[in-house]
Design a protein around this nucleic acid. Structure first.
Lengths: 154, 154
DNA sequence: TTGTTAATGATACCCATTGTCAATAGAGAA
DNA sequence: TTCTCTATTGACAATGGGTATCATTAACAA
């Protein structure tokens, strides 16, 4: 679908000595074609419509692979089902954090104050690396709440 | 073990019309006696040593209950196994956040810059509540990394 | 002490994710 | 293009946190 991201994926895979397979392209495309945060099963369903011979196991494996390569991020919202999102998605804002409705699991992205958040995180990161001798590889900032729709239903 | 926290627990339970049972006291005590972040199974093992007739199901139920009452917090570190921690633990600092080794799952608590973090979070919270009409109930701020021990093993 | 019923414990179950392994298909060599 | 090698796949079984069920037990009010 998106030539750029397909070429990008191709290059990244080949550079790591990995093969560029149909499932890998299709799964990456599926994430590139939505602004939603899909679970592995949801990715599978969407892929399955056009390519019924691609299995759920492959979806899991591919999402893991893409996450390991830094192409995809895994999002834990506390319901025991991971959601996945393409890091560089032209349909989305750049670095953002998430606001999650703990009732209906709806996820809202925000980028208000994100620069400020990142500035502070960087400062904390330096201090923690030094003090606890960690190599910091990532962070999570997330808000939980109840959206207006779910509040009305009670 | 701790008279204060036992009295506290008793009061909170009774005020909600809930019964003060042996398992509830013991499970809360178990969390009060450690600075570690225990999984449900780890709580069960510890409880089981002295009270072998308390079942794992009850541990899960009680941890859920205590979380719902705001006495315990659940911590997701991304390995599919929740960890629990007593919110007001005399052996621990007050409000803190976590640094997690993604390799060995060790959890380090930190309170450096926490005031600053909380200040910013509060500001973001106000903006998000307004803009997206959410009632914000909580937040997660967490760093991931590799601890020095795990880095040496490679 | 007794009656009521919330809470418990044993067990079966659910369901997201991972392991296994024979079959398939990228991609470099010929 | 065809061949070869082996990474990758897909079907299926297995794992493992966590939850539902239900008969039994034990808080607690009277």
């Amino acid at each position: 679908m998106n030539q750029n991201s397909n070429a990008e994926l191709h290059g990244r895979l080949r550079k790591s000595g990995l093969r560029v397979t149909k499932p890998r392209k299709i799964i990456a495309d599926t994430l590139g074609n939505t602004i939603q945060h899909l679970s592995a099963e949801e990715v599978y369903f969407r892929v399955h419509k056009a390519y019924p011979n691609i299995g759920l196991t492959t979806v899991y494996r591919t999402l893991d692979l893409l996450e390991g390569m830094g192409i995809v991020t895994r999002l834990q919202i506390g319901d025991g089902r991971a959601r996945y999102e393409l890091l560089e998605n032209p349909r989305k804002p750049g670095h953002h954090h998430h606001l999650v409705c703990t009732d209906c699991k709806r996820i809202v992205e925000y980028s208000d104050f994100v620069d400020e958040e990142l500035g502070l995180l960087r400062k904390v990161e330096v201090e923690l690396s030094r003090k606890h001798d960690f190599r910091i590889t990532g962070h999570v900032i997330q808000f939980q709440g109840i959206c207006s729709g779910c509040r009305k239903q009670h």
